[in-house]
Amino acid sequence: MAEKLALVGIGKIARDQHIPAIAGNPDWQLEAAVSRHAGVDGIDHFQTIDELLEKRPDITTVSLAIPPQPRFEYAAKALKAGKHVMLEKPPGQSLAECYALEALAREHGVTLFATWHSRYADSVPALKAFLAERTLKRLKITWKEDVRRWHPGQEWIWEPGGMGVFDPGINALSILTEVLPYPVHLTGATLEFPENRATPIAAGLTFADPVGAEMSADFDWRQEGPQTWDIDVETDRGAAKLSLGGEKLEIDGEPVIQGANHEYANLYVRMADLVKSGTSDVDLSPMIHVCDAFSLGRRVITDPFEF
């Protein structure tokens, strides 16, 4: 029997990704939406999470597709009500919030899934297998996109807790922490802040690799035209390039995998498995790198940004 699910936040990411992924998975039945401004045809609509929890106690799972700033309150209420909770990335606006939610899920015996959709791109497992059998020499992340295209008019990303360019950049870091056979840590960062914004529009990161590989990341939200979501690696036995955010993989210049956009469909498969097994998945390693970047980063003021 399909689990009854409520989707909180009916914005661009919900309509583009969450709703089609839920509709295509027989383990889920979308029963309700929570949003102050929008609904979904054919299902119950509520203005607040409190109204949802009061009027639809039969719903077992809540998926949160809202900005990180209000997410803790919504998630905490759902967990305390005995609901399984799925968190859009990043899982919160601080690490402390995420640890608190993890503890609440344990206390109430429910599933908490901190999702990293880019980890579920088609070519990520193959890159992980490639690196597991080789010694890494160099890794370079280039993650550049147009914020006006992907976040039109969304002011929350420029407010504290919104993370700025790390909203997409954390996707790259989620792949990095998935494919490497060992952990790495940040050694330095340069963060470019528009003079009128509270979060960065660009960032350059460097990492310490335990085997001595050169490792860096370049994030930028000002790229027009073709968008760039690449990870290039060199090893002792060949090179690989992950592109299109994880859909495509080349090894030594030859295409190996040309996937499609299955990330959110795979997330809901994973969530169903977690609920069935009574377990949680709360890996915060990508967010640790972001927090370290804000801690270690040298702040540079750049031109103001307006939508």
Rank of each mutant, 00 (worst) to 15 (best):
L5W: 07
A6D: 09
G11F: 08
I19P: 11
P20F: 11
I22D: 00
N25Y: 01
L30S: 12
E31T: 12
E31H: 01
A32R: 09
A33E: 10
V34T: 13
A38S: 14
D41Q: 13
L52C: 09
E54N: 12
D58V: 02
D58S: 13
F72V: 05
K77W: 09
A78N: 10
L79T: 00
Q93F: 08
A96K: 06
L104P: 00
R106G: 00
H108Q: 09
G109L: 03
L112C: 06
F113T: 06
A114E: 10
A121G: 01
A121R: 08
D122W: 01
S123L: 08
V124M: 05
A129F: 03
A132T: 04
I141P: 10
D146F: 11
R148A: 05
R149Q: 09
W150L: 05
W150K: 00
H151F: 15
P152M: 04
G153Y: 03
G153P: 12
Q154A: 07
Q154E: 14
E159N: 09
P160Y: 07
M163N: 09
D167L: 00
G169T: 01
V179P: 00
L180G: 04
P181S: 01
H185D: 14
H185I: 02
L186V: 15
L186Y: 07
E192T: 13
P200Y: 06
I201K: 04
A202S: 13
A203N: 02
G204C: 05
L205D: 10
D209P: 03
D209R: 08
P210G: 10
D220I: 04
R222A: 14
E224H: 07
D232L: 09
E234L: 14
S243F: 07
L244I: 03
G245S: 08
L249M: 12
V256T: 10
I257L: 15
I257A: 14
A265N: 13
V269S: 11
R270D: 05
D281N: 07
S285F: 01
S285L: 05
M287G: 12
H289M: 13
D292P: 08
S295V: 05
G297S: 12
F305L: 13
